[in-house]
Design a binder for these strands. Structure first.
Length: 155
DNA sequence: GCCAACGTTGGC
DNA sequence: GCCAACGTTGGC
């Protein structure tokens, strides 16, 4: 079992949007970074746990959890000229980009802000708090996941 | 809106 | 293969 942090801008796709999807399930398309692509394609497995993080938000932070319900498969949005995720470099016979499907699990009682995350030494090794981190999909440890889940479960 | 950090592109 | 220029991310 792997543990992940997925970033999303709430203006684009919020955790409520995920919850409101059919079966509380959505594709996670539009990842256009090779390192993140490799994680989705090669490492993300069925039932892996996901922290749902808001970037470019006020405040930024983790707002809930989800799980992987479909392992990496071709991001067909890259072939769709009408999609904002269209990428002419991704060809049908040589796809560049991959995605997974996730299902809503829980919404936290309160957002666990980046500021709060930075205050715990238990979370100091997360890629999230390291300088220059821009990856929108990256692995975390079970203990980091559990720690944040616990924070988010408190009123 | 600014800007630091990082990734990608393309000329050589 | 180097690296300058450019584009993007994301916190503030």
């Amino acid at each position: 079992m792997n543990y992940w942090l997925f970033k999303s801008e709430p203006e684009v796709f919020s955790i409520d949007d995920l919850k409101n999807c059919k079966n509380e399930t959505s594709t996670w398309e539009g990842i256009r970074n090779y390192q993140a692509r490799n994680f989705l394609r090669d490492t993300a497995k069925l039932n892996d746990k996901v922290l749902f993080y808001y970037s470019s938000a006020i405040p930024t932070g983790v707002v809930g959890t989800a799980k992987i319900i479909k392992e990496g498969y071709i991001d067909h949005f890259a072939f769709d000229k009408k999609s904002e995720y269209y990428d002419e470099k991704s060809k049908l016979d040589k796809p560049q980009w991959y995605m997974v499907d996730i299902q809503f699990e829980s919404k936290f009682q309160k957002i666990i802000t980046l500021e709060e995350i930075k205050s715990y030494k238990e979370l100091a090794n997360m890629r999230l708090v390291q300088k220059g981190n821009r990856l929108s999909v990256f692995p975390i440890t079970k203990s980091e996941y559990d720690f944040i889940l616990k924070l988010g479960s408190k009123k």
